[in-house]
Nucleic acid binder design. Structure first.
Length: 228
DNA sequence: CACCAGGCAAGTA
DNA sequence: TACTTGCATGGT
């Protein structure tokens, strides 16, 4: 038990060092405003980031990437605007829910929201239609500067392939590994998650072998390629 | 052509 | 409670 504890701790520290050494700071989240982070967090659900950028650009160009505009826009018009991000009908409704929540509970003021403690904020966010654990935590960390570690598909894959978790580990189980071993520093959590995604885009794509991938040495012994 | 991408909610047994 | 399915575009 304490054996696994030590292995995990060492793994997390060494992976972070290797990623930071190879890629350097990522400067996440890629957005100009906090609202753009929140909208992007919903749009990127199960969706390639390139498609999300197309949708965000359309909203910005139309001058509609604002709480008041999003609140008054018909849901069908919003869906049309975000079409490139996929699942546009679902996501339009979800964005409407999030915007309504921020207007209702915080008078549309993200700075007011930022002053609230994150455990309460997370419970509130999880109660909003369309916001699950990852979206909630992305908003908490990247829009509201809270020290909350974001777990995504890349994170899960990374730990799974290196034998740090089992197949049935759930979101909070994985998250707990990070929060238990790392300082609760929002900038560390920010960079670490961003670096994992950066790695994932290089490394987790299907390809015959991972020659040249930075974490090749981190694959389980005897395993070649990405194993997908 | 098939497969996948920075999830989540709703339905079924 | 534990699975399964729908949602949809654009890149590789």
């Amino acid at each position: 038990m304490t054996r696994l504890f030590a292995r995990r701790k060492r793994f997390l520290e060494e992976v972070y060092a290797a990623l930071m050494d190879h890629y350097g700071p990522q400067g996440w989240w890629p957005a100009e405003t906090d609202l753009e982070v929140i909208v992007g967090a919903v749009l990127t659900q199960n969706t390639n980031w390139g498609n999300v950028e197309k949708a965000l650009t359309r909203l910005k160009t139309a001058g509609e990437l604002r709480l008041d505009r999003l609140a008054e826009m018909p849901v069908d018009a919003l869906a049309e605007q975000i079409r490139p991000a996929g699942y546009f009908n679902v996501k339009a409704r979800r964005l409407k829910s999030v915007v309504a929540f921020i207007q209702r509970e915080y008078q549309g003021d993200l700075n007011q929201m930022r002053r609230v403690a994150w455990p309460l904020l997370r419970r509130q966010l999880l109660g909003v239609h369309g916001i699950g654990p990852e979206t909630a935590d992305s908003i908490l960390l990247y829009a509201l500067d809270k020290p909350v570690f974001v777990v995504d598909a890349y994170t899960r894959r990374l730990l799974l392939r290196h034998g740090m978790i089992s197949e049935e580990a759930d979101y909070y189980g994985i998250q707990e590994i990070f929060t238990r071993h790392l300082k609760p520093d929002r900038r560390l959590f920010n960079e670490y998650h961003a670096l994992i995604v950066r790695l994932g885009k290089d490394f987790c794509r299907p390809r015959p072998a991972c020659e040249g991938c930075v974490l090749r040495a981190w694959l389980p012994k005897g395993k070649k390629g990405c194993g997908r």
